[in-house]
Simulated scan of single mutants.
Amino acid sequence: MKVPFLFLTNGGGVPESQRALELSELLGVNIMPSQLLADVTFASFLLFLRSQIVQGHSLFRNLLGRYQDELIVATGKGEPALVMSEYGFNKVLSIDEYVSYFKDIDPVSQYKNWTTMSRSDRSSTLTKLASVCDVYTEKVKAAFIVSDPVDWGRDIQVLCDILRTGDPSGQENGVQPALYFAADDLEYQAAFPDKRLGVGAFKIALESIFNRVHHTPLECVIYGKPEPIAFKNAEATLNQIHCDMNHESLDSHLNRNQSKNYFSALYMVGDNPSVDIKGARQAGDPWISVLTRTGMFHGKGNHQEYPADLVVDTVEDAVDFILEKEFSSGQSGCSSG
């Protein structure tokens, strides 16, 4: 029995191909790396990654038509500028790189005992963009929060500057450049026993401060779970993975079945009720939510605010249930948070 599956995660900061390699080595199975395709199932103008790794920032690629050759800034842990560059954006700077152009833009940098960017990295950045733009005069057209920022204080200060109007000095007022968040998780479970503040907490901090120091409220667009577009993209990707496994084209499947979705059931397996379960519930049929007690949730029963269709102890329990239930009823798709 072949079961199409993918990893749907708000975690990010590295390209899908790198994440696929990491999981392949960790799990001992071959996880498909990314491949760009035109989407035909929920909006003809969108693009999506045919990959078994779908991160919160994967859909940033759909904004290429708007920002491919515009100056943009990306922030977050990992390699946010590399992520955006691999999506096809030609003039992207990480916020580390952007800050390196402006002396004293971070007034407390002298008190920090860490370095986020070496001199050689800065030199490489200057060389990289010198032929295509002038960072000192060209306005930033959009800022992308790719993953959890590392230096909140600096990033909030610099984003408040450039989001005023995109001007490097931040001194004039005007139309706010676009701001995109890869996710909105308030908390997440990491190695520390208690929950840690996530990118959603950074959004609250940035929004609160921006609205106090600027004359217009901050505007932003959010991707990732539990946003409906994240689940629509996962659904489209699972359809394509299924067709690949069965050596047929998605077009031929749609023509034959007159249906946008091959699956009678799509299982969202996750441990965060406010992200994984809420998203699956909002997405509706054919999504079925499975809540595990492996991270954000440890309750004995179900979650009160966002109850799942099924609650189990582990991911293995969830997979066993799905395979047993679906073995005699045809194909299903599985998405793991």
Rank of each mutant, 00 (worst) to 15 (best):
S109W: 10
Q110K: 15
Q110H: 14
Y111K: 07
Y111A: 14
K112H: 09
K112S: 04
N113F: 14
W114K: 09
W114T: 09
T116C: 07
R119N: 12
S120V: 15
D121P: 06
L126M: 13
T127V: 13
K128T: 10
K128V: 05
K128G: 03
L129D: 06
L129R: 10
S131E: 15
C133K: 10
D134G: 08
D134C: 08
D134Q: 07
V135F: 04
V135W: 00
T137G: 14
K139R: 10
F144D: 00
I145G: 02
V146P: 02
V146F: 08
S147L: 08
D148K: 08
P149Y: 02
D151C: 12
W152V: 07
G153Q: 11
R154K: 13
R154E: 02
D155Y: 00
D155M: 04
D155C: 03
I156M: 04
I156G: 02
L159T: 06
C160Q: 06
D161M: 12
L163I: 06
T165M: 09
T165Q: 11
T165L: 01
D167N: 05
S169F: 09
G170C: 07
G170E: 08
Q171Y: 10
Q171L: 15
E172H: 07
N173V: 12
N173K: 14
N173S: 14
V175T: 14
P177E: 05
